[in-house]
Structures are given as structure tokens and as C-alpha cells.
Design a protein around this nucleic acid. Structure first.
Lengths: 99, 99, 99, 99
DNA sequence: GTGGTCTAGACCACA
DNA sequence: GTGGTCTAGACCACA
């Protein structure tokens, strides 16, 4: 692959992860949904880092606090875990779903 | 051209605004020059927001202090102004340039 | 006097800085006068923070816009300055007053 | 009782609810603990409003966002509920504790 | 580098 | 009036 920025751009272009500032859905909620989708589809794999707060800010053009809030929701919902000073990672799904 | 995001991406891809960490020119200086260029070419239009410090950190992969320094230089040089709670904006050029 | 909080409370109790909603003087003007008085008497010292807008709202039971207006007047009049991410502070008096 | 402000001041004076900005415990956490204590001791009664965000800001001298965060934690923990445009109230304790 | 908390203030819907 | 979200940036501990 030639260029990660280009790749990301195509993703943007094809409309997958975009923030709509005019939506009634809060921005941090939209970001939670985007990340949750990437985790569920396996684009963000278990025990691999999710984008850092700084990257989310750069990618989606949002305020830092908003990105932090979204990540905290993921952690609170058990989809990710934070390692102090290192980053936030995708939580391994429990094999114990009540299916 | 269909998509501004794509356009911007190609710019990135073709190397226009990139930081060279091996250059003797300090990184914050390089960033100032990039932003000043975007302002002068009108890519960042008067009274429109410039990227936030956090966004610059994510976009260019630089340290926070470096981005802060660059933005401070822009404000000091009268190229941008900050509105608390809103953002940092490109200053309208005075029509009184000594042309 | 043992406790600054107690002291301040007595001031409040004894009616020094109070807003009179029935006065013909606009509320924001009254607030400006209160704050200006506190600054001039040194109760709010140079380079020390003044109460935030939200705090003034809670303390005086006034509308947000009213508190904002009062603070803006103080800043415009050169009695205070705002540092983003830190607070709004009392401006040091120039030693050059036309005494 | 003569004066609510005085009353509150005595509370402050006798050290019950104070915020320690130098504590390693985050300010919003300290505020959660203060309010939780007042609820558990019945000082804030079921279906009665807790102090508004503006009041908390004025009383404790903290930023608005910090007060909002504390209140949201109370709501998330099931100790309070919010009525849009009205305020936040103490939740009636379930009689169904698993004691 | 990382996330977390804090400061300020602006804008919003709802009542 | 109420709480909620958003903007900005500052400072911190940890690695």
C-alpha cells in the first residue's frame, strides 16, 4: 500500500467514518458508534491499540475533550481498556456470551 | 474535483505540507511556514478556523509543545486570533498593506 | 480573623456585594461596580483570578449573559485579562496612573 | 435560620464540604463524594433537587464542566435523575436492596 | 509519546 | 432558569 493518508482518505471518501456536526446525535456519540463498528467488524483487533486521542482529533477534526469522552465511553462499556501511559486497546471478547 | 477531503489527501500524498524531522529548520518553524503558506494561498480563509493544537499534533505527528509554539507564532505575527470557546481563526488581512 | 471563607460570608451577610434587581441600574452594571470595587480595594489582587462567569451566576443568582457582559466590560476597560485554559485575572495596575 | 449563605459558610468553616485542589483525588470525584454523602445522610431528600450546576460552581469555586461531570456520575450511578429543563433530583431509594 | 483532568466560555434545547 | 455538548488550551502522571 502506498500511503496510509491516502488510504484513510478513500475511507473518508466512501463515506464510512464521517462526523456530522449538524446531526442531533452528539459528536462524541457518533465517534463511539464509528469505533464500536470498527471493533465489531474486527477492523480494530483484540489487544491492538485503537487510534490515540491525538489521532482521533486529527482524523475527525474534533476537540480533544470530545475524543477523550468517546474513548472513555468505550472503556466504560467494556469494549476497550486503557494502559496508563501507553494507550487504549481493544478488549478481547469474552467467549461466554449467553448465546 | 469531486471531494475536498480527497483533494487534501492528494496534497498530503504529493508531499506539500510535510514535516522533515531531519531538517536543520526547527519543526515548529516548518509548521509555521506550512500554515502561513496555507493562509497566504487562501486554503485557510479569513475568519475561518485554523487546525487546533491537538489536531496539528495528530496530523503532523509532532509534540504538543511544538504545535503550541507554532500557533503562538501565528498569533504573535498577527496572522491568526483566538476566540475563547470558539477556536483560532485566520485574521483578515488589512487592506492597508504597504504594497 | 481565622477563616477567609467566613469573612467573605459575613460580607455577603452584611449586604456589601448584593445585586438589587429592582434598581434602575442594569444588573450587569451593578456587577461591574461590585467587581471593580473588589479590585480597587485589593480584595481581588493583581494577577489573581476573578470569579468565572459560571461562578458569578451561582453567587449572585443572575443570568449567564449578564455575567458574561460584566466580565467583558472589565476586560474591555483593562481591569482584567483572560488566559485560555487558565482563567481570568486581575490586571496589574500600570504605575503610570495620572495621579 | 437567618441567612442561607451564612449557614453554608459555617458548614464550610467546620470543614465538611470542601474541595482540595491539591489532592490526588480529582475534583469531580471529591464533589461526587460530597453529594453522595449528603444524599445518604438525607440532607438531600428523595425527589428533592440537588444543587444546580451553577450553584455547585458558585459554592465550590470549580469549573462548570467539572460540576456537570460530577452530577452525571451521580445520575449514572443511579443516585439522581435529571428532568430536562428543570433540574436534577435525588432518586428515591429502591426498597428492594438485596440485604 | 499516552490518557486524564482542569480552566475558560459559547451555543443549544427545553421549560 | 436547567443540564448537555462543544470549542480552545494548560498541566499532570506515567512510560
Amino acid at each position: 500500500m502506498v500511503c496510509p493518508a491516502l488510504t484513510r482518505c478513500f475511507n473518508v471518501f466512501y463515506g464510512l467514518p464521517m462526523i456530522d456536526h449538524d446531526s442531533p446525535v452528539p459528536v462524541y456519540r457518533q465517534l463511539v458508534d464509528i469505533l464500536r463498528g470498527q471493533i465489531e467488524r474486527g477492523e480494530l483487533a483484540p489487544d491492538r491499540p485503537i487510534p490515540s486521542v491525538a489521532q482521533l482529533v486529527g482524523t475527525y477534526g474534533i476537540a480533544r475533550g470530545t475524543a477523550v469522552k468517546a474513548v472513555q465511553v468505550l472503556v466504560r462499556d467494556g469494549l476497550a481498556y486503557t494502559v496508563t501511559g501507553k494507550g487504549t486497546y481493544v478488549r478481547r471478547r469474552e467467549a461466554t456470551s449467553e448465546t
